[in-house]
Design a protein around this nucleic acid. Structure first.
Lengths: 191, 191
DNA sequence: TATAATACGGAGAGTCTCTCCGTTTCAACT
DNA sequence: AGTTGAAACGGAGAGACTCTCCGTATTATA
């Protein structure tokens, strides 16, 4: 996979397209017309399709920047707080990310490999950087895995656009719906 | 809201359209062409739009039957099991429903009022019929509300198509990600 | 500057949604 | 049964979108 330097005009159009896509998607949602994005970028539709063969490829390019920042924040949190709190704080950031642009963030998070950018791998690195210490510290149950975190977070982000509701659902997910079992309930067979 | 009897041909076409929609959506997903549904039903596009002004109205009609059955099952479970178990069993059914037709079920569950069929009200009745007893019995925390159940369930259904994963995420949501607090961790300030 | 490789642009084919209106069908009344 | 007004039908068509193809223009290299 050797990346030979792009021709100057190609590079310029690539950047114009990503910028236009960011603007149009922010205002019209993830189903915005690709035609309009091309128009806004000042290029023809053909050019758009040459750079980004599928809609998802374009979306991935738009989100790569945000995702990179999100993963960097995981590292910062890990160094600034105790493991359990750091994880929770990052999950909050993750939900915010997943809610951007009408739930588009969540859609990208779930895409295993969206043409070039491997969101999955990036997220996995960041999430496990926080999850494993939190588990070692005993703040999070040991059987929780990376994929659980991402799917639950993405799910919450997709069902509501209201940050207050999202916060509420995240809290519930962290603590569980069942009553805390410091009572007598022993749950003989829950399977 | 007086419902005068439909004309015979109107009634017939209505039913043909719902049947066609069910078939086409099952095979092509929720974004299936409305044109094709009309064609399959043997009517013109105009007729389809007269009966169902929006896509969601048609989808709601398709799902009304399934939803009705789901709500009836809530009643049956309530009579057959202890409150806590009944709720969990019904949530399992709810997720299955939410996953049908490529996550379309979840989309309908979240639609507050989809042209005629008020899914929200139906679900609310069924869910609270199970939730409140479960809370009185102490199986579920008292601050959980109907809307929490629906949103969490719909979220799970939308992020995965694999029943195994859905089951896993439901279990996690019921029990929480945090470690059960029979340990020493007291969480002074988690905000 | 000449030339091959690369990228561009936009016309156009095919599809989809949704509307409009002339035509047909139904049901109520004589 | 026959008449008639209302209700419903159907399909042509406007407008928008996705994606392709290929003649033209631009870029890098010699």
């Amino acid at each position: 996979m050797q990346t030979r330097p792009m021709r100057a005009d190609a590079r310029r159009n690539h950047d114009l397209l990503v910028a236009a896509a960011m603007a149009v998607i922010a205002e019209k949602g993830p189903d915005a017309s690709l035609n309009e994005i091309a128009r806004r970028a000042g290029v023809g539709p053909g050019t758009l399709y040459r750079h980004f063969p599928t809609r998802d490829a374009l979306l991935a390019a738009v989100f790569q920047g945000r995702l990179t920042r999100l993963c960097a924040q995981a590292e910062e949190l890990a160094e600034a707080m105790p493991p359990g709190e750091a994880l929770v704080a990052w999950l909050r950031l993750l939900i915010t990310h997943a809610m951007t642009d009408h739930g588009l963030g969540a859609r990208m998070m779930l895409a295993t490999s969206s043409a070039g950018v491997d969101c999955w791998a990036m997220l996995r690195g960041a999430a496990e950087r926080l999850l494993h210490p939190a588990q070692r510290a005993g703040s999070v149950r040991a059987d929780v895995e990376f994929v659980d975190l991402v799917e639950l977070t993405a799910g919450i982000a997709q069902v509501t656009a209201d940050p207050g509701r999202a916060e509420r659902l995240l809290t519930l997910t962290l603590d569980g719906l069942r009553r805390p079992r410091d009572t007598t309930e022993q749950t003989a067979a829950t399977g």
